[in-house]
């Protein structure tokens, strides 16, 4: 900021007071500062205004407040294969983080929620520990577009339902919620018909609640019970619990589970897709999934 001044008493009479100043006549640093006050989608829109705005929209100062504060750790962790991560601009880091990035052998995905600085994580059922998952009498594995991972696990019938997972991840500081994405009943097409119907015939054993648990290395430990049969026939995000991250620079360790191990009855007809972790402020967008 600031350039060219003088204490000399020389006269300079060339007064130019433009009646119609143009916003792109401002120094590029000013335009970048204006852009940095805006949401990412607005910045990207204004990059199309003209060449000056486009150039300003690439500046690190614009994106410094948009990327997660621990972006250096995330870049190292998630873009490590490419080797060029150190030279990435902040805009490039932001745009790459906005697209889901697979990790842990494609069983997990992470992305930056566009409007917040929070990180979202999805964990496929393939990244969870599920009792009896490889025994087709209990569980079948179904390819489907209903899941972002294009696969779900379907519970045929079982006494002992137990699903566990864990994650160690450098979440940026903030408040997060964890969910299981489940559906009672299975969508299927009737032969000769295009209509998709939810087949609830096989569904039984859900009149007792399922127990959810979440424990974090930051000290949270929550357990809750939930009746799944109250929302049979549609995909639901079942809220397991919340956790708070204060330090973005150390990994947060999470353990979570879902269980219904009452052996007086069998359970059947449950679709298991994935576990989702979202920043709390973006939770109201869940219906998109």
């Amino acid at each position: 900021m600031g350039a060219g001044f003088s204490s000399l008493a020389t006269e300079k009479k060339t007064v130019t007071h433009p009646s119609n100043p143009n916003i792109s006549d401002l120094p590029e640093s000013c335009i970048a500062s204006i852009l940095s006050c805006l949401e990412p989608s607005e910045i990207c829109k204004l990059a199309r205004l003209n060449k000056t705005f486009h150039q300003a929209s690439l500046a690190d100062v614009v994106w410094a407040s948009k990327v997660p504060e621990n972006h250096e750790i995330l870049v190292k962790k998630l873009f490590s294969e490419e080797g060029s991560s150190e030279s990435l601009s902040k805009k490039e880091i932001f745009s790459r983080l906005c697209r889901p990035i697979p990790f842990s052998g494609d069983t997990k995905e992470v992305w930056l929620e566009n409007s917040s600085r929070g990180i979202c994580v999805a964990i496929s059922w393939k990244g969870l520990k599920i009792t009896g998952i490889d025994d087709r009498r209990y569980w079948t594995h179904i390819s489907t577009d209903e899941s972002r991972f294009h696969t779900i696990a379907y519970l045929q019938q079982m006494w002992w339902l137990e699903v566990e997972g864990n994650l160690e991840f450098e979440f940026p500081a903030g408040n997060y919620s964890l969910f299981f994405r489940l559906q009672l009943g299975r969508a299927s097409k009737r032969r000769g018909s295009r209509r998709i119907i939810n087949n609830l015939e096989q569904v039984h054993g859900w009149n007792k609640p399922v127990q959810f648990q979440l424990a974090s290395s930051n000290g949270e430990h929550v357990a809750s019970k939930c009746y799944l049969n109250e929302a049979a026939g549609k995909w639901m995000h079942y809220h397991v619990g919340d956790f708070v991250v204060e330090n973005s620079y150390i990994p947060t360790k999470l353990n979570f589970s879902m269980a219904q191990i009452d052996c007086t009855h069998t359970k059947a007809g449950l679709c298991l897709d994935s576990v989702f972790i979202f920043p709390i402020e973006t939770v109201n967008k869940l219906k998109q999934f």
Partner: peptide, 13 residues
């Protein structure tokens, strides 16, 4: 974009 161009006399270059 069109409104901003008009508001601040910005030419699409």
């Amino acid at each position: 974009i069109i409104e901003v161009r008009k508001m601040f006399n910005v030419e699409n270059d």
